[in-house]
Amino acid sequence: MDTGTLCRFFFWCTLINYLLLGGMTLGVILFGDKIYALHRRWFDFDRGTFEAAMYFFLGIYKILVLVFFFVPWIALLIAGR
């Protein structure tokens, strides 16, 4: 596999994952009450705990996408020149 193919792969992985992250963030912002009500049925926690868990999840997801997709894409762009 050449660097051009890998570069395109990591670009599309980065783009798709950041679009998913943006969608999840908008979902939590716009529909936070409904998402909380849905999860409240399964788990016994208050709204503050729910918001902290969502903030933690979105932050970890963002860092993982950055480390495993964005940084390799940038590295391949630099190495391919």
Rank of each mutant, 00 (worst) to 15 (best):
I60W: 13
L20M: 13
L66E: 11
R47M: 04
L64F: 13
G22M: 06
G48C: 05
V28I: 12
T49V: 15
G22C: 08
G27L: 06
G59A: 03
I35C: 02
L64Y: 09
I35L: 15
L21H: 02
F45M: 14
G22A: 15
F69V: 04
Y55A: 15
F56A: 11
T14Y: 09
D44G: 08
G48A: 06
T49R: 03
L21Q: 08
T25P: 04
D44H: 07
T14K: 05
T49D: 03
F50A: 01
F57E: 07
V71W: 14
L20P: 03
F43C: 05
F31H: 09
L15R: 12
F45S: 08
W42F: 13
M54F: 03
V67L: 14
T14P: 02
F57W: 11
W42Q: 00
F68G: 01
G23Q: 09
L38Y: 09
T49N: 05
G59V: 07
D46H: 11
Y36I: 01
T14C: 12
F69W: 06
L15Q: 02
D44P: 05
L15V: 13
A37E: 15
L30H: 12
M54N: 01
A53M: 11
C13L: 15
G27R: 07
R47D: 07
F57N: 00
R41C: 04
F57D: 03
V28D: 04
L58Q: 02
F50L: 01
Y61W: 15
F56M: 09
F70L: 15
K34N: 10
M24I: 09
V65W: 03
A37W: 10
Y36V: 02
F50E: 01
F45A: 08
D44N: 01
F31L: 14
F50R: 06
R41I: 00
L38E: 10
I35P: 04
V65A: 14
L38D: 14
L19G: 04
I29T: 12
Y55H: 12
G23P: 03
Y18F: 13
F57A: 07
F45D: 03
H39E: 08
R41H: 09
G23D: 05
G32A: 05
F69C: 10
L20Y: 12
H39R: 01
R47A: 08
L64N: 03
F43P: 03
A53L: 12
F50K: 00
K62R: 13
I60S: 07
R41L: 10
